[in-house]
């Protein structure tokens, strides 16, 4: 245990680019995801199997949830928000595999996701409402609140990042400490709790991103 436990865990260098454990774990997750999707949908004309039906249910459930929050057709937002939820679930659940650490336990991954959400909110807001009307909503309900509105944009993105990072990181630390103190079997309930926390954090992150986007695209369009 030398250095900060929060410091990035560099595994190797690819040329000048240092590859951290989080990036490598993400690549593994992406590989697994690609394999899963290939098995489920990769062969055109294949008969619909249980895997495909399961994934279909997952996607439809996400779409249903998003429709309830957005109050409009969720399909334009599924690529970002659905991917957020699925990726966060898989990333957070990496903790249950021995030797693997969740990429979200280091600040770079939540920061990257929060950054993408931050940019997406403005992207959706401008494309759905037009730049003028979108920017006008910073002056509401009063132009005096413009500084606060701008500050809120930054802070809520920051809190989005820190919430995920803090939860996953602390969970990782708790397990490490429990393992260090109590041995093999005691951390198992904490690992189960980790699964719950991982899914809850994925859900919270996605729902908050959805709410931000919903606020940006405005009230329900006729």
């Amino acid at each position: 245990m030398e250095g900060s436990p929060l410091a990035p865990d560099i595994l190797f260098h690819l040329g000048p680019v240092p590859i951290s454990r989080a990036v490598a774990t993400t690549w593994v997750i992406m590989g697994l995801l690609a394999g899963l999707l290939y098995v489920a949908f990769g062969r055109p004309g294949a008969k619909q199997g249980a895997l495909q039906a399961g994934l279909e249910i997952v996607v439809l459930t996400i779409a249903d949830q998003l429709r309830q929050i957005l109050g409009r057709d969720p399909w334009p937002y599924i690529p970002l928000l659905g991917s957020l939820f699925l990726f966060l679930c898989l990333a957070n659940l990496a903790a249950v595999f021995p030797g693997a650490t969740p990429p979200t336990g280091h600040i770079e991954t939540p920061a990257a996701l929060a950054l993408i959400v931050f940019l997406s909110v403005h992207f959706y807001g401008v494309t759905r409402r037009g730049a003028r009307r979108y920017l006008q909503h910073y002056l509401e309900p009063s132009p005096l609140l413009l500084p606060l509105n701008l500050l809120a944009e930054v802070t809520r993105t920051f809190s989005l990042m820190i919430r995920l990072f803090g939860n996953m990181m602390s969970h990782e630390f708790v397990i490490a400490i429990v393992v260090f103190l109590a041995g093999l079997l005691v951390p198992i309930p904490f690992l189960l709790l980790g699964i719950l926390i991982g899914i809850i954090q994925a859900y919270i992150f996605t729902v908050l991103a959805t709410v931000y986007i919903a606020a940006a695209v405005g009230a329900v369009e006729a």
Binding site: S4, L6, A7, P8, I10, V17, P18, I19, S20, A22, V23, T26, W27, M30, L33, A34, L37, Y38, A40, F41, G42, L55, E56, V59, L60, W75, I78, P79, L80, G82, S83, L86, F87, P103, H106, I107, E108, T109, A111, A112, L113, L115, I116
Partner: peptide, 30 residues
Amino acid sequence: MQIDWWTLALQTINFLIVIWLLTRFLYRPV
């Protein structure tokens, strides 16, 4: 607390790839 900017950039790209992957091979087929 330090941020590895390489990792941040890579993770951003990774997530965009995940979005493309899921859109191409999950959402559209479904």
